[in-house]
Amino acid sequence: MNYLVLITALCFSSLAFAQDDLRLAVEESVATRLGADTQVNVSKVAARGKLPATYTLELRSDPKTQQKLKLLVRDSKGSGVAWVDAEVEVLVPVVVLTRDAERGNTLETSVEVRPIREAPRDRINPDDLQDAVAARNLRSGAVLSTRDVKRENLVERTQPITLRARRGGVTVTQRAIALQHGSRGDIVRVRTAANQTVEAIVVAHATCEVP
């Protein structure tokens, strides 16, 4: 009797491990399709057919539009040998405004990232918030899209700026006048104190650097 209990327990344990591995494989397949920042929760998963010791999963449903997914199981030779049915919940990180913002207000300190089920296709990436300002008046709680933000100009046309040049570990600075407006990383024309026109990269507020 004790042997029967032990064997039964081992079988259930083995099945549980196999189920956990399959669930993890489904999560990885969906996350690979949608992006590493996507949170995937698998509520149900079941295999139709015997799973080989080593396998890969191939999505045959679109996780962007469907919660019930079908995945083809391929063995180490690439042959389709079974199917997996899964029910998933996909949560996508979005940037949400935490207080009202008027057009031109900086946004980096007025937002938080939240996972939601249905995100707009043109959602803004949290990494793109540096130097971002509101492109229009926005209300608290809004999910930010690329239409809601624009890059702040760190240099304005005719603005006095600091122009830097790095040579052999030495940094030389001088005053100059911007001839174009630009955001961080933009290349703009500037006029030096010697009345020469050069191109420089916008690196900070009122600061450019000669490449």
Rank of each mutant, 00 (worst) to 15 (best):
T162Q: 14
V40L: 11
A31W: 05
V81C: 02
D75G: 05
L51E: 09
A142T: 11
K150F: 03
L97C: 07
L97W: 02
R103F: 13
N153M: 12
Q174N: 02
E89S: 10
G168Y: 04
I161H: 00
T158P: 05
Q159T: 13
G49T: 07
D62W: 13
R166L: 07
T32N: 12
Q130H: 15
L69H: 08
V84F: 04
T38P: 00
S61Y: 01
L72M: 14
D128I: 10
A46K: 04
T38A: 08
T65M: 08
L107G: 02
R48G: 08
S110K: 02
L72G: 09
V155F: 13
P160E: 09
D62C: 08
A132R: 01
G168V: 01
K44M: 13
R164Q: 12
T173C: 08
G104Q: 06
A53N: 11
K44D: 15
Q159L: 15
V45R: 06
V133L: 07
Q159G: 11
Q67N: 11
V42K: 05
Q39D: 12
L163F: 11
R175Y: 00
N125Y: 09
T65A: 10
D62Y: 08
R114I: 12
T171S: 03
Q66M: 10
A53Y: 11
E152I: 05
Q174C: 00
Q67W: 11
V133S: 03
V111Y: 00
K64E: 06
N153G: 02
K44F: 15
V111G: 01
V94D: 00
I116G: 01
P120S: 14
V172C: 00
R157Q: 15
W83N: 07
T54L: 04
N153W: 14
V92Y: 02
R166F: 03
R114M: 09
R167T: 04
V96L: 00
L97Q: 02
A36M: 11
A82W: 11
L144G: 03
I124V: 15
G80K: 14
P115D: 00
L51P: 02
E112Q: 10
R157A: 15
V42S: 06
R164G: 08
A142D: 05
V90R: 03
N105L: 07
R60P: 05
N153K: 10
R147S: 09
A36T: 14
